[in-house]
Design a protein around this nucleic acid. Structure first.
Lengths: 187, 187
DNA sequence: TATTCATATTGAACTTGTGCATTATTACTG
DNA sequence: CAGTAATAATGCACAAGTTCAATATGAATA
């Protein structure tokens, strides 16, 4: 188990990674360097820029979650498993995989790790002998119950400056993308 | 080198992973299962749901890019490196890391791989002897020149149903998140 | 009912991505 | 100018994440 021990100055450096953000004449944020580099391509860049921004945002959120989780000896993925089990009770590994949008093989690994840490155990699935269910141990339940609210508060910091409508619109547009992606994946 | 050979039915199955999307009374998409599970927590779920939706969207885009890239024997990350070098010319590895929002150590790995494939070479940085620059080989240039437009077209499919304003708003909100995340990372 | 097809989990293998330490180089300070 | 601090790339190690194949089980079909 490694320790997250970067000092504050190093954290500051990391926060420089990614797009150079500026505000346009309508007050909306855009990526300055992106436009400098890609405008000469003479293509419709609006979709490309928006998708790139989303990917940067996703990475930033992921990094923050990993950092936050590391304080509790948990990765984002493992946190996701714990929280899902906390809300749903026992779940087949395949269902966890679907819920968390990752492969069953990866869930196997995450559950292996959580099992090793004594936070989750595998139990047979009475409904389907091919299947295995993940179940929180009492230590696991205690762990997630002790931290999920703090995790939520941590996320509220990220949406500073956004209105309720902004959040609804962000959610809608992201889910539209998910649906479009599903169509593409199904082709 | 493995071959991506999943058949169409398996692709369809994969497209089920992730949130169950429904449309609310205002016509906006939301995650039905999410609300069923988390409403009982009696917390402000709007930020949590929006951020979760963004993470799902980011994953979906990543998956699609990986699938698309696999047809050209390239991962999303390696594509990012190639495209950046194509637009910018030679770049120090550290600058690539900043631009692509990942660690220098990971760029080292991606460039190793691209170098092995003959698409990129390392050249000394005349301005700083600690630094190494990545440069497209002629094969690398030929590769990216042959595919980047198709990659753009591939992305246009993802934004079907979005207006120009939608894209601008999505971009803005994502970049606001990036900036908020930077503040949190700098704490 | 027997056979065929589909599915759930996981072993094996690989890539991506990060944290940490190392070494050489550059920048800063006294 | 000498010493100290900071920085760039990469070796080493590990976890996350995926692909593919294997095995046991469940569902569908003839």
């Amino acid at each position: 188990m490694h320790k997250f021990n970067m000092n504050t100055d190093e954290l500051k450096d990391l926060s420089k990674a990614g797009p150079e953000v500026a505000r346009d004449e309508t007050g909306l944020l855009y990526m300055k360097r992106f436009r400098d580099l890609f405008d000469p391509l003479k293509m419709d860049l609006a979709p490309i820029e928006a998708l790139a921004a989303l990917r940067y945002a996703g990475k930033a959120i992921h990094l923050l979650q990993e950092r936050w989780g590391a304080k509790h000896d948990l990765s984002e993925g493992r946190l996701g498993v714990l929280f899902r089990l906390f809300r749903c009770g026992d779940l087949p590994l395949g269902e966890l995989a679907d819920d968390l949008a990752m492969t069953p093989r990866n869930i196997t690994g995450l559950v292996d790790h959580l099992e090793r840490d004594g936070l989750v155990e595998r139990v047979p699935d009475a409904d389907d002998r091919r299947s295995v269910r993940a179940r929180l141990t009492s230590a696991g339940r205690e762990r997630i119950e002790g931290i999920w609210k703090e995790g939520f508060d941590h996320q509220y910091e990220l949406v500073k400056g956004m209105t309720k409508d902004d959040l609804a619109q962000l959610r809608h547009l992201c889910l539209l993308l998910v649906e479009n992606a599903r169509k593409e994946l199904g082709k």
